[in-house]
């Protein structure tokens, strides 16, 4: 296989284990089900919110224990996560489709598969459009054959965003992002025959990911305003923090 730069190996080492994550989230859902059964069947949307909330907790845990991030003060850590959580959450969902999923369906972190046509059929226009654009992004990343190593780098690239306002350790964050970019470029050069153009395509995918994550936040905010979002969890806290 291609030579993997040392930094990329370190990033891979920080990645959570997919099976462990699955087990943890399923256990959490079963725990919550006890509460649901006494009332009525949970709505699909609130079930999805619980899953998203648990994924978000695992993203925070990944960041907290990751190289470079551990060195930051909690105040900077919070600013970076407040800024990047929705992109990281969406990347988590999308990378799962590329690494483990199959065409035409959405693979959840719990291992369940949902037909994309079913989602689009039952969803309102906002969620249907989000799903379709997400699917197009999955197709692009699939064509680019983005692998686990690259997804691992991209997560750090998103997290260490030097454009976030009022960072105390702006220098370290900027330097980490530059290191990530170099490692990603170095790695893509060893794997791809199209060299730079593939790297540029990857960066274009990231800007699409960013606009999709904004749409996802808008959608969740709308759901929150109409009283459909479960409260008192990390997902709703992150939504509020960005509005404040």
């Amino acid at each position: 296989g291609p030579r993997i730069p040392q930094l990329v190996l370190e990033f891979l080492h920080c990645d959570p284990d997919e099976l462990q994550l699955r087990r943890k989230i399923i256990a959490r859902l079963q725990q919550e089900q006890t509460g649901w059964e006494t009332h009525r069947d949970p709505e699909t949307f609130s079930l999805m919110c619980t899953i998203a909330d648990q994924m978000l907790c695992s993203i925070v845990e990944w960041a907290r224990t990751s190289i470079f991030f551990r060195q930051l003060k909690v105040s900077d850590q919070m600013k970076l996560l407040h800024h990047g959580w929705s992109e990281l959450l969406l990347l988590d969902i999308i990378s799962r489709q590329i690494l483990y999923g199959k065409e035409g369906s959405l693979l959840l972190v719990t291992g369940q598969e949902v037909e994309l046509s079913d989602i689009v059929f039952h969803a309102g226009p906002a969620l249907a459009s989000l799903t379709q654009r997400g699917q197009k992004l999955v197709e692009k990343l699939h064509i680019l054959k983005v692998d686990r190593q690259e997804f691992s780098c991209i997560k750090f690239f998103i997290l260490f965003n030097p454009d976030v306002k009022e960072l105390e350790d702006h220098g370290l964050i900027k330097s980490v992002q530059e290191q990530v970019e170099r490692a990603l470029l170095e790695y893509t050069l060893t794997t791809s025959s199209q060299y730079l153009s593939r790297f540029v395509d990857l960066l274009l995918c990231l800007s699409e990911l960013r606009s999709l994550s904004t749409l996802m936040e808008d959608y969740l905010n709308f759901k929150h305003l109409s009283g459909e979002m479960p409260c008192n969890n990390l997902l709703s806290e992150m939504l509020h923090a960005k509005q404040a």
Binding site: V60, H82, L234
Partner: peptide, 18 residues
Amino acid sequence: KKKDNALLRYLLDKDDTV
């Protein structure tokens, strides 16, 4: 505003040795 971010702060601040 501090109270608003209580959960994130808790998750980041928690002590693994406990």
